[in-house]
Design a protein around this nucleic acid. Structure first.
Lengths: 346, 346
DNA sequence: GGCGTGGTGGCAACCGGTGGCCAGAAGTTG
DNA sequence: CAACTTCTGGCCACCGGTTGCCACCACGCC
């Protein structure tokens, strides 16, 4: 088949021959509305479908410089947080007729850069999610290729960041209403822009609300990373902890259970992202949800705009939101057996 | 930038001009080891790196018919079962220098076919996971393009299926040892080849073990689908249920909890796949794990072999395996409070 | 010294489209 | 009816590589 396959596949020349016109006429009939007479277009279209013609994107890409492909670079494909994002991105790209490349950098800047270079040649544009590259490397890429960064802010590069205020404000208000005054933020990797952004806003808004907050970290953004922080969380004396992401929050939850610390009775836990699984834990996890599916969609739309030379418009609807579940309650209750919120056990 | 970007990007002609040779010599120096003299190759390589040359995959694809891209088609990107599979696939493709396209058919045969056609032109080969197409459509695709189907068997098409026997045998032995004699299989979608395969093997192996088993279904392969089956599961009088996948098993778990039915005290539950989250539930889920990451890797390796005209070799290590957690115990215990297996709460 | 041989590089065609430019036909206008 | 547009289709160069074939050169050998 390797050879057989190479044969077949009708080209515009086949159509041209059958209709008795030149190839450029076929090209125009198929892609330049109004450029050829209606009945000629008609004849060419019928011949094209009869021959099962499908355009060769590579051949088209050569003169136009446009491959019709976009690329998505993630630091960790198996992090559940990305799946809604990928879905949103995939929907928009397939709806607009683009193909989507995907690659994972495995938290390594070098392999991220390598993948980015590979895709610079093969795709029309790049989306970098939670990039591990430094600002200058990103700027260099953006100089050569349309580029959108997600969950990161780089000067002079199109970026996409959800509005953290409603979610973080909601979380702080929620905890304050429950009676918490002393909080901990479990931070993520030191090179994570988003971890820093969450922390800085928490700091700011906690002070506004007259609450104390300390940072513990940096930590790896996994369940293990969350579990590893337990000792320091306890030592801090805080009554509630916000973890950089749900994975860490879940890790902490499990570590608490193993150590006999009741959640939310002795410690309230809040996560970020609302990943799949956040409502499967016991207690189910209160978390700050990001509109991930929509962010994926918007990222691709902005990228397409950039590819087409238009100015990307970011809708202001990318707001985070607090999802209240069962891992938060008033401080210093002796037992976790009666979480005060609607429980969602499995 | 849309224009600026199109400029730059050194070509082999730029290198040729700088070194003072012809483009074909450059092409050979770069990709035909030994075809040009060593010092000429040396000079060309230095010039290439000096100019920041990177090959244009589209230009190369035109004469060779090889784009260096592979495509992965899934029915549902957000199903956690695919996460590890995608990772395995991505690792192998990026390790072999291929780029990976990804698309989701949203359970629709029409959009799957549409995506497949799009990728036929742009990629060297396709991987279809849990395809919703009928056998003939898949065969037609396979006639025109190197193709590997995963979790599906189609005559004359390369397929990749894990060995279900160890996992299913293990699950039946486990349940039998616990004292169960009467089982239910909660089947998935009627067009799911894998659901059928699991059922048929369960049937076969249950009879061998002198156990009763009935099928309930078909059902949608989601938590809702699992929850929806509760009434019929109860009515069957069975003491243990195996669900088509973990999502359904988790849905059933939650429905049981809501209905006051103790798991595993009143009902033991076994899932399939061991997705992310299967050990987050309470009780944590006993499940038949598939080697998903490796399957992703093997799928891409087979596809590459097919692309290169070699015979794909499927290693016999793709065995399923029973993961015993806390959702199974002996039948008819009054309470679920003391699951007999090491519990993994949160 | 003539000839064979292997090593090395160039020429040119080709992959499948795109698009600028041109020419003939048809239609408009004065 | 001539001059001028507008339509419509063809010609051809080009995008950036690959590769079959040929030519030239140096060397070795008889």
């Amino acid at each position: 088949m390797t050879l057989a396959e190479r044969r077949s596949r009708a080209t515009i020349y086949d159509i041209a021959r059958q209709v008795g016109v030149s190839a450029s006429t076929v090209s125009r009939a198929l892609h330049k509305p109004g450029r050829v007479s209606t009945d000629m277009e008609e004849r060419i279209r019928t011949a094209a479908t009869a021959l099962g013609y499908r355009i060769n994107p590579m051949a088209r890409a050569l003169p136009t410089g446009r491959s019709g492909a976009l690329a998505l670079l993630l630091s960790d494909i198996t992090n559940p947080v990305y799946f809604p994002f990928i879905r949103g991105a995939e929907r928009v790209s397939s709806a607009t007729g683009s193909s989507l490349f995907i690659a994972e950098s495995r938290e390594s800047a070098a392999s991220e850069l390598h993948a980015a270079h590979r895709f610079q040649a093969a795709a029309d544009g790049l989306v970098l999610v939670a990039s591990r590259l430094d600002d200058q490397a990103i700027r260099d890429l953006a100089d050569a290729t349309p580029l959108v960064v997600v969950n990161r802010e780089v000067d002079g590069v199109a970026g996409l960041i959800p509005d953290l205020r409603p979610g973080i404000g909601g979380a702080l208000d929620h905890l304050r209403t429950l009676g918490h005054r002393s909080l901990v933020y479990l931070s993520g990797p030191s090179n994570s822009w988003m971890s820093r952004a969450r922390w800085e806003l928490l700091l700011d808004m906690a002070v506004d609300r007259d609450m104390n907050i300390v940072e513990i970290g940096p930590g790896t953004p996994t369940m293990e990373g969350g579990a590893a922080a337990l000792l320091r969380v306890r030592a801090s004396g805080a009554t509630a902890v916000l973890a950089f992401n749900d994975l860490m929050a879940i890790g902490l939850l499990r570590a608490c259970h193993a150590a006999g610390i009741a959640v939310p009775g002795h410690l309230s836990v809040v996560g970020f992202d609302d990943i799949f699984g956040a409502d499967l834990t016991t207690p189910s996890l209160t978390t700050v949800r990001s509109p991930l599916t929509e962010m994926g969609a918007v990222a691709i739309r902005s990228l397409l705009a950039a590819v087409n030379g238009a100015v990307p418009v970011v809708p202001e609807t990318l707001a985070t939101e607090l999802i209240i579940r069962a891992s938060t309650s008033g401080p210093r209750h002796a037992s976790a057996s009666r979480p005060r919120h609607e429980e969602n056990p499995t």
